[in-house]
Nucleic acid binder design. Structure first.
Lengths: 230, 230
DNA sequence: TATTCGGGGTGATCTATGTCATTCAAAAAC
DNA sequence: GTTTTTGAATGACATAGATCACCCCGAATA
């Protein structure tokens, strides 16, 4: 299943932003231990609790990142799209993954040994600096998710998720999604049944239009109001 | 109100772990722009949304860090105790504070310009590395809080908070706390009334003993079971 | 001394949301 | 071409937990 995407990192036009801070010799070091892997829909890239050996950079498709709680309940904390690398906090503390990454659709990713990346962080300040920014933004995102989940009601959370899908993840409206209703529920901290119900009320009120995997936002500003007022 | 604690950073036996990675000249640079401030109970050290100019290191007392949502609701995401520095993710992205820091009791803190710290991160790899570890651990803590808040019921969350207070924050049992019931509620994602109610049931069941600001855990293992089973 | 005020504590409601059970359609498997 | 599986959709019901309204008490304040 392993499948080379590009001859090497130097030529790669798919490389993540932070790699632009690396010089040729540094890129070659990365390239030497890089493998490109193709994942089918639903396949696990790494699993919460397992040791983290590799740094993952998504080059095609869509990958969901989620926390696994007791009894099958999941919380989606984010997605990785081309070209995002996945920041794994465990790499800097207990060498374990603290969330699971799964391909939502046919996806490819480059894997690089974490040791190499950590070496580069030590020698290349610019690289380290853009890394810190990424990490910080992830933390800020978690703050917002925590506030939203504990303080907003279901319609507010759902409105937020729909806006996020259209603006950030798919960057189009309408958008065709490979996410299930369960995934949307996991993004908004509710059960699948509740997610479907809220989406139906939104549909009945003319806020959105859904047809299978296609979702269109009809009244953006009203949806934003709902998202703000919880 | 400003009040010098120590002549300078070199002599300071109160300095945070990460500063042990700095040499004398680096410590002097930190010292040159360092101010030590004394805060009274309830005083704000920095406020969510405000620009972040300073790196804060708590040298005495207890500081709570919380997210402010709509309508007065708060979520305590952590505490800073001697000698902790407060990681401010905004320093690496939008230069804004994303949570508020308030002294729970009489506290002192050293403030250092963020620019100095960011310079040091660029020049001292060891310093940067221990910084990354700290950031990562904060992210992992947020994952746990998010899972707990969305998946556990009130008794589970309260049990968790009580154990955390005794083991991590005060490291004693019984412990005398300067936190109000509202603070405990903000830590466990519930209203003050609910927090009081749950604590009463714990008291009635012989799990804990409370008297004013003193809390004692009587049955640790049963509390842990409750915390694990939600 | 009288009074205000902040925090702790309690009970009576109300409701947002989870749970469970069931149907339906489409896709996949045999 | 049946049969099985999977996800979407919907209704009935139960309940965890918020909200509101109130009391009590000690400390600060007038």
């Amino acid at each position: 299943m392993a499948n080379l995407l590009h001859a090497n990192c130097l030529m790669c036009r798919m490389k993540s932003d932070i790699f632009t801070t690396l010089n040729d010799s540094e890129l070659n070091r990365v390239n030497d231990c890089r493998v490109s892997i193709k994942y089918h829909q639903g396949e696990i890239i790494f699993k919460q609790g397992s040791p983290c050996h590799d740094f993952v950079c998504v080059t095609s498709g869509l990958v969901k990142l989620y926390l696994e709680g007791e009894g099958d309940r999941r919380i989606i904390i984010g997605f990785a799209r081309p070209v995002d690398y996945i920041f794994v906090p465990g790499a800097f503390s207990d060498k374990r993954h603290h969330f699971t990454a799964v391909a939502c659709e046919e996806s490819t990713a480059c894997l690089v040994e974490v040791d190499i990346i950590q070496d580069l962080l030590k020698t290349n300040q610019e690289f380290a600096s853009s890394f810190m920014t990424k990490v910080s933004e992830q933390a800020i995102g978690l703050f917002e998710q925590l506030t939203s989940f504990t303080q907003k009601h279901m319609p507010g959370r759902m409105a937020e998720v729909l806006i996020c899908l259209s603006q950030k993840i798919y960057q189009s409206n309408p958008f065709i999604t490979s996410l299930t209703r369960q995934d949307i529920a996991d993004m908004s901290g509710m059960t699948k049944e509740s997610a479907i119900r809220i989406m139906k009320t939104f549909k009945d009120e003319g806020l959105i239009l859904t047809e299978g995997n296609s979702i269109e936002i009809l009244d953006f500003s009203r949806l934003e109001t709902i998202s703000r007022n919880g």
